[in-house]
Design a protein around this nucleic acid. Structure first.
Lengths: 228, 228
DNA sequence: TAGATTGTTAATCGATTAACAATC
DNA sequence: TAGATTGTTAATCGATTAACAATC
């Protein structure tokens, strides 16, 4: 086996990688981590693709957006590809996270192990309810919303999760933006607008169920594929 | 204003509506419901699109998959379009839901109001921990996994939410399938395989954060759009 | 009527797949 | 070596956008 090539070609990171490619990248990473746990050293675009219902060509094309990570005739070394994808996704380091809204969902996200496994650390929680401020939940201190700018700065927080009611979502978004946050994961069932320099990902849990009810109700008989 | 046209053309519901179209349909519904709450009677493809960052042509094309819902020169009646989209998505009626896994996330989903607002009722919860069985959480009774077939049948449940650890996801999936479930919303960070006649939607919360860290870390300066 | 807006067709754009030389 | 598999180009496929006659 020759020298690892794993150099990341970020010349084209600026030239618009399709969103779908990035989301498949996360899926590849998840599968590779499972393979690693099963002590598998190498894999191929064919194997990786078939685990997720994609073609081998798609796997190779997706990776090609970012560089050359494989060995012709051999495939990919799982550990190398994991590191490469983590570097691309930015999860080769830890991300301190602010969580806004300590309702049902907020508390669940505070305790969610899956975040920590990928390097996401919820280090501060915020709520407008004065009764909750000062508490420590799952080891995470709860602050007043007014403290956002100070806490965000002192803890080096760049990402925020919004788990507030729809009605409060835009105001909460404005506050986190004001505090210097660079990216927002919005769980409120509400479209929010942010300055264009702040990244936004939205997850609406009811919408996910709607996708399912549509598929079941209209029973379009397609091959089973996991959308994420 | 002429006769409402709202007939749903389900001849093509069998000819593969793209998944992206259905997910935009849910977003249109969400915006329309907000417009209705603001007492707006009609809207246009241009308005609806601009609320979500889509073109007017896309809105009209998406709706055209399912029928004719608008009035040339006028636009769309919000209430009519809400009813039409709900009928398409299958949320014009209630869906009793089974929730499997009463950990942190499971409990949060039990109490999540957003589901109920769209007609999704979690009517039974399941857990493998005997200590939890028999409890009633947020008004929802907790059963043993073995009771799945019986409860699913007696309550007419067709959809299940999986909120179990990754390691337990495939086994849980097999159990709900065995009990006759027709659709699965999987929150476990794990690819699961189901018989092709059972629909699957997957949501991996860590992956959503990865999409965000990628966007922030690589700071590709695109216009702010909400992925869902 | 004139202005607005739909539904739909045709043109454009982008993403996926197939194919294959290069490599191990 | 022969067999396997990559990275990449060209061909295909599908989705988005533009344009416009029909309609209110």
């Amino acid at each position: 086996m020759a020298e690892p090539k794993g150099k990341i070609d970020d010349t084209n990171s600026e030239s618009a990688v399709p969103k779908a490619v990035v989301s498949r990248l996360s899926l590849y990473l998840r599968e590779l981590q499972h393979l690693l746990r099963d002590s598998q050293e190498t894999t191929s675009s064919t194997q990786l693709g078939s685990m997720l219902g994609f073609t081998d060509a798609q796997v190779r094309k997706d990776l090609a957006y970012f560089g050359q990570f494989g060995y012709p005739g051999i495939g990919y070394r799982c550990d190398e590809l994991v590191h490469a994808i983590k570097r691309i996704l930015g999860t080769d380091r830890d991300w301190p996270i602010a969580l806004v809204g300590i309702g049902n969902l907020g508390r669940a996200l505070l305790g969610y192990r899956g975040f920590g496994e990928q390097g996401f650390r919820v280090v501060a929680a915020f709520d407008s309810d004065p009764q909750k401020v000062g508490a420590v939940i799952e080891g995470v201190p709860v602050y007043a919303a007014e403290d956002l700018p100070q806490v965000v700065k002192s803890k080096g927080i760049r990402l925020a999760i919004l788990a507030v009611p729809a009605i409060a979502a835009q105001a909460a978004a404005d506050q986190v933006v004001q505090s210097g946050i660079e990216g927002v994961l919005n769980f409120a069932p509400m479209t929010i607008t942010l300055p264009k320099e702040v990244r936004l990902v939205g997850v609406d849990l009811a919408i996910e169920l709607e996708q399912l009810s549509f598929a079941v109700a209209s029973r379009n008989p397609k091959p089973c594929d996991e959308s994420i």
